[in-house]
Design a protein around this nucleic acid. Sequence first.
DNA 1: ATACTTACTGACCGTTGAGTCATTAAATGC
DNA 2: GCATTTAATGACTCAACGGTCAGTAAGTAT
Lengths: 203, 203
Amino acid sequence: MPNQPKYQRRKEDRPQEIADAAFKTFAEKGYAATRIDDVAKRAGVSKGLTYLYYKTKEDLFKAVVKNVVIRRVDSLIGNVESTELSSEEFLRGPLLEFMKKVPGSPIAIVIRLLISEGPRHPDLVNYYYENVVARGLEAIRQFVARGVERGEFRREALDHQPHLFLAPMMLSMIWRLVFADKPLDTDQLMESQVELLLAEMKA
Amino acid sequence: MPNQPKYQRRKEDRPQEIADAAFKTFAEKGYAATRIDDVAKRAGVSKGLTYLYYKTKEDLFKAVVKNVVIRRVDSLIGNVESTELSSEEFLRGPLLEFMKKVPGSPIAIVIRLLISEGPRHPDLVNYYYENVVARGLEAIRQFVARGVERGEFRREALDHQPHLFLAPMMLSMIWRLVFADKPLDTDQLMESQVELLLAEMKA
DNA sequence: ATACTTACTGACCGTTGAGTCATTAAATGC
DNA sequence: GCATTTAATGACTCAACGGTCAGTAAGTAT
C-alpha cells in the first residue's frame, strides 16, 4: 500500500479548474443559489483554496464570465475580418454558421447569467457589450457597407439595423434556454431571416 | 392624540397586495436574493402574514408569476380575435402596437424570471408556454392563414414560422433588460421586420 | 359592556452558507 | 536527511434567512 499523497500542488492549473467548475455551477443554479462549497467539490479542491485564488464569490463570478467571453470571442470575430468571400457569401455562409452555433454554446449561458444578474453587475454588462455585442454588430455593418460599395447591395441596405440579423438568433437562444423540450427549428428560423434580409438588400 | 389602531384587518386585499410587493421584489433581485421580510415590509405587513396566505416562498413565486400572466394576457389576446381588419392591416397595426408595448411591460419581467428560474420551475414554464406563447403564435398563424384564404398573401406565406414576427420583439426585450442604457430604436426594429415579412408574403 | 373569533404581529428557532485562519503536508533547496 | 516555503485543507464563526407559533388586538355578535 503505497503512501499516496493527499493532494498535489498545482498552482498554475487551479484557477482555471476552479473557474470551469464555477461556470458549470453558476450555469446550473444561478448566482445566488451556487454554493462555493459545491464549486470547490466540483473542482476537486477545498473551499479554502477557492478563496486563495478568488477573494469573494462575486470576484469569482466576474472572473468566470469574462473568462468565458475571452476564450470564445477572439477566435470567432478574428477570422471574420480576414475573409475573401463576397458580402453575400459571407452573410449566407460563415455568419449563418456562427449564429446557428451560438444558441447551444457557452455564450448562451453567459447571456442567461447577464439577463439574471446584469443589473447587479453593471461593469460586467459593459464588458460584454464592448467586447461582444458592439464588435459583432460592427462586423455585420462592415459587411453590409462593403456589399454596398461593391454594388452587391442597394444603398438603402445601410439603413437596416444589423440587429435584425441577430434577432432570430436571440429568440432561438431564449427558446432553447426556457422551452428546451418544445420543438422549434431554430436553424431554419435563422436561415429564413438571412434570406429575407438578403432579398431585401439586393432588390 | 387619537388612539390609532396598529393595523386594519383586510383579508380581501392582503393577498394581492403581497403579490404586488413580491413581484416588484422578485423583479429587482431575482428569486434567491429576495427575502420574504422585504416583501412583507414592502406590502406593509409582517412576515408572518405572508406565510398565512402563501405557504412557502416558492408558492408565492409561482402565484406571483401566474397572477401577472393572467392579468395581462386575456385582455391582450382577447381583443385580437374579434377584429374586423384585413390581415395586413392587423399585422401592421394592432400586432405591431402590441409588440412595441411588450418590452417595457411586466411581461418582460416575467420572461426574465422565467429565463433565470425556469429550469427549477418546469410547471411555471409550461403554464406560460400554454397560456401565452402557444396562444400568441397561434393567433399570428391564424392571421397569416386568413390572409392567404382571402388572396392577400401568397400560399408560401404559410411556410414562414410565426416566430419570425416575434424575433425582434424578443431581441428588444432582452436588450432593454440588459443594456438599458445603450441606445437602440427598438420600435423601428419591429416595424422593419413587419414590413420585411409583409413584403415577402405579398410578393 | 362582554365574550368570541381570527387577522395579524414579531420574537424565536434551526439551518445554511460566505468567509477566516490555524494547521498540515507537498515541493524545493542545501 | 533537514529546513524552509507555501499550496492546500477543513474546522470554525457569524450573519442571514425561511419558516413557526404563542400572543395580541381588531372586528363582530349578542
